[in-house]
């Protein structure tokens, strides 16, 4: 794993509301140019964490650095480099898309000419250029969400934080949003994606962090988390065979790409890097046994997520 420079660092970050601890001793590192998925059930403290990153909420204790700045005392500098798309973002309904972005550009101190150029550019990026002079009240949810991304891109952020950008969006809209996010990472922007749509996260994120009840319970690449929770190998193959002899197990272990073989309750549980069902079947038959059933599944983020969240 390449050790790129970290852009967000937190240590023992804690936020309490009265007796309730929303975020408990969060230690997190996010690197330059990566897409980081922040996962967790509702009320796990994801949004609170995001608000602290932006300096909108004051941490109770702990250290936090965003692009080298302290969000609490240098909030303006942080907000200049960090773009935030809130969950279910809102715009001024009586203004056009361009006027809405104009306001954001002005708030970011862009000159008029600069703003015009930048607005054209970002509207083009999110595919809303033809709709730029339409009132926001005529925008669909997906268009608003894309405009929200444009709104973040206006300030040329080093870090973009998206809170549930794909919830309630049709599949085509999701496709567009995910490809915009991937494009941002290519341009060396870090993206933090907080979402419940785990298959979307899995498609774009290089690393994920799973939060539960204010704790960060896991933080790693999806691959490593999969290995840690579900065993070796990308595929899980379950084989029912009779009889399961030691010879059969040894033969399967010798197949190329097999990562692990276990026998639990007369079922062979095999981890492998590729789909090798045909080789396994042959190995069983060759060793005078009979395969009575075979199931294969690819590990996915949902399994990893549920495992970590249930443990809490």
């Amino acid at each position: 794993m390449s050790q790129a420079t970290s852009i967000i660092e937190s240590k023992d970050l804690t936020k309490r509301y009265g007796n309730f601890t929303a975020v408990d001793k969060l230690t997190l590192t996010i690197r330059e140019g990566e897409i980081f998925g922040l996962l967790g059930p509702n009320g796990a403290g994801k949004t609170t964490t995001i608000l602290m990153l932006l300096g909108l909420t004051e941490p109770t204790s702990g250290m936090l650095k965003v692009c080298g700045y302290d969000p609490l005392h240098e909030a303006i500098k942080v907000k200049r480099t960090v773009g935030y798309l809130p969950e279910r973002v809102g715009f001024y309904e009586d203004l056009t898309a361009r006027q809405n972005l104009d306001y954001t550009a002005a708030l970011n101190g862009l000159s008029h000419a600069e703003a015009e150029r930048k607005i054209d550019e970002v509207l083009d990026t999110v595919g809303l250029k033809p709709k730029s002079d339409q009132l926001l009240s005529q925008f669909s949810l997906g268009m608003k969400q894309r405009l929200g991304i444009a709104d973040v891109l206006i300030k040329n952020p080093k870090v973009a934080i998206f809170d549930e950008p794909t919830s309630g969006i049709d599949p085509e809209g999701v496709e567009q949003i995910l490809s915009i996010i991937l494009g941002m990472a290519k341009r060396k922007m870090s993206v933090i994606l907080s979402s419940h749509q785990l298959h979307h996260v899995q498609r774009v994120c290089s690393r994920v962090g799973i939060m539960a009840k204010g704790h960060l319970v896991a933080e790693d690449s999806i691959e490593n988390l999969g290995k840690a929770t579900l065993g070796e190998g990308k595929f899980r193959i379950e084989v029912q065979a009779a009889p399961i002899t030691e010879k059969v197990v040894q033969a399967i272990k010798h197949i190329k790409g097999i990562a692990s073989v276990e026998v639990i309750d007369n079922v062979l549980k095999i981890g492998s890097e590729s789909d090798v069902r045909n080789l396994i079947a042959r190995a069983i038959i060759d060793n005078d046994s009979l395969a009575t059933g075979m199931k294969i599944e690819e590990y996915n983020l949902e399994k990893i997520y549920l495992k970590y969240v249930k443990e809490q």
């Binding site: 932006l54 909108l56 303006i76 500098k77 907000k79 200049r80 960090v82 773009g83 935030y84 798309l85 809130p86 279910r88 973002v89 809102g90 715009f91 001024y92 309904e93 954001t104 708030l107 970011n108 101190g109 929200g148 709104d151 300030k155």
Partner: peptide, 14 residues
């Protein structure tokens, strides 16, 4: 209520 506030406050202004 129009959900503009958090977006507005995330801009670099006091």
């Amino acid at each position: 209520s129009s959900r503009n506030l958090s977006r507005l406050l995330a801009q670099p202004i006091y």
